[in-house]
Design a protein around this nucleic acid. Structure first.
Lengths: 167, 167
DNA sequence: TTAGTTACTTCAATATTTGAAGTTACTGAG
DNA sequence: CTCAGTAACTTCAAATATTGAAGTAACTAA
């Protein structure tokens, strides 16, 4: 299977990966949340090749994660901004930031602080149940694959077994 | 800059990306949360080439995200399990699943349901402030880059400007 | 003896990424 | 009017990574 086919899986994680499952793409999204707007800023702060940056920005615009718009005419210059769809990636970025702080920290301390504007708490937000408010981890949740996903996985498994038998 | 250098940035998001910023890697992690344990399962349910799977599993074990251990001798067979470091990626996976459900859904309905064992709620958990309990989005948080990160970004910007001037 | 299982490895063809350099369309200084 | 500067790209060849198909190793069970 090709990377480009991942989005066809009947799985919400795979579908998300098909759009933001690439390190450069996620760095661009980080930059957008850090308020970078321009091509040059993305290039400078991520270090990626301009060719790749162009390709990724184009794809992200196509996917509706960001919007490209001219911020001046003559010479025409563009800026890039997160759409609502893009802004909704916030939990994903926060989850990455938290994990990095917890497991990849160095002596210099956390490079980034998140402050809740309302209560002033200096700490990263965590996952909570919207009903009872409790903090949740993997042990607290039961994962139930629905028929559509089970069928898709059965199909993949069958295909895999067919292929290995053929060899 | 190369993808392999991303982890050197003084940014928790970049550091996390250096370990799980790859679509195949994240699919493996999804599988682990779906209780897949064996090489064959990863191969079958992700569709990835065995060569790549070997490489990714080796790297993830090296990074401490999962553990490889023999579940039988003669013939020796291995299984892979998330470590605490790996289990702590749960918010990331949940964030991807939620975003996929919200923005990439199709008529068949959500492929995956998460049930909070304690209160029985069928819904995905969201990001909340650990202090005041409020749900938080990008507008509710203030992002403060610390000196170590600002310095690193200044260095990257300078390098970028130097390079473009040279051309 | 033969087929089957599981966990890989090898390889050549194909695709993507990288780094360096070049292009376009302007503005503002001298 | 010319020349340096800026922002946003494009082009290209070389290096690197992925793909799909096939093969291997070490067993077990019929």
């Amino acid at each position: 299977m090709r990377v480009s086919q991942i989005g066809r899986m009947k799985c919400p994680v795979a579908r998300t990966l098909s759009i933001v499952g690439d390190p450069w793409t996620l760095l661009i999204i980080r930059e957008l949340f850090l308020r970078s707007r321009r091509f040059e800023e993305f290039q400078g702060y991520t270090g990626m090749a301009p060719y790749l940056l162009t390709a990724r920005l184009k794809q992200l615009a196509k996917d509706g994660v960001l919007e490209r718009r001219a911020y001046q005419q003559r010479p025409r210059r563009y800026e890039y901004r997160l759409t609502d769809k893009g802004l909704d990636l916030y939990p994903l970025v926060v989850a990455m930031a938290q994990w990095g702080d917890r497991w990849m920290a160095d002596a210099a301390g956390p490079p980034l602080k998140l402050v809740h504007k309302h209560c002033g708490l200096h700490s990263a937000p965590g996952l909570n149940c919207p009903e009872c408010g409790e903090a949740v981890g993997p042990r607290d949740m039961q994962t139930e694959m629905q028929p559509v996903m089970l069928a898709d996985r059965a199909r993949m498994w069958k295909r895999f077994k067919r292929q290995t038998r053929a060899a």
